[in-house]
Amino acid sequence: MNRLWKEFSKGLWNELPPFKVVLGLCPVLAVTKTADNGFGMGLAVIFVLTLSNMLVSSVRKVIPAKVRIACFIVIAASLVVCVELLMQAFAYPLYQQLGIFVPLIVVNCIILGRAEAFASKNPITYAIADGLGMGIGFAMSLTVLGAIREIFGYGTLFGVQILGSWFKPFTFMVEAPGAFVCLGLGLAGMNALTNWQRRLKGLDAIEGPKHDCASCGMCNIK
């Protein structure tokens, strides 16, 4: 039970994607125009990540090592097709808002990275806990980033006006440049926080997490 909680909770803070584990940046930048969109994308990722971790873990002993990446891709892609069909049926406006980033969940490094780094080596219960934790962490980050950009860019939060009529929308925040700058400052803030905590403990400051393509299993494809 203890370990189950550990695997679940690491995605919520210690390895929070995309701030502590810098992966899957495209959807983070693209769909965080509003908190709604970020949350919707987060839910889709929770669904795909948890189920893909579960499936990968349950077939991990059957799949030959050489073709494992191809198998992970097929598993992820089938789940993404399920998400696409579900969204078209029950959340069509959201599906249209997210656009091509729904099918692109399949190439989100977090999905394949967790499959390769965790699910393919661990029993099914831990894999589900890991997927759920990472997914919830990712959804939280997307929602928070979306909320910040929405408040400054439109003066609303989840579509509700929260800033008065004195507020002039800061359109920069909801356009492409704002996405990059916001995420950059978010990462910088996270690094500063980590270093501040380390200094309180009397440790030396460290450099922030590297954006590391190698942490996603695809790069080892052979």
Partner: peptide, 22 residues
Amino acid sequence: PQSIQGTPIALILAGLMSLAFF
């Protein structure tokens, strides 16, 4: 500054480039 080194500064630079392309 140390916290901005690496990925954060790259993202902020990308944001400025994106502003230029805007």
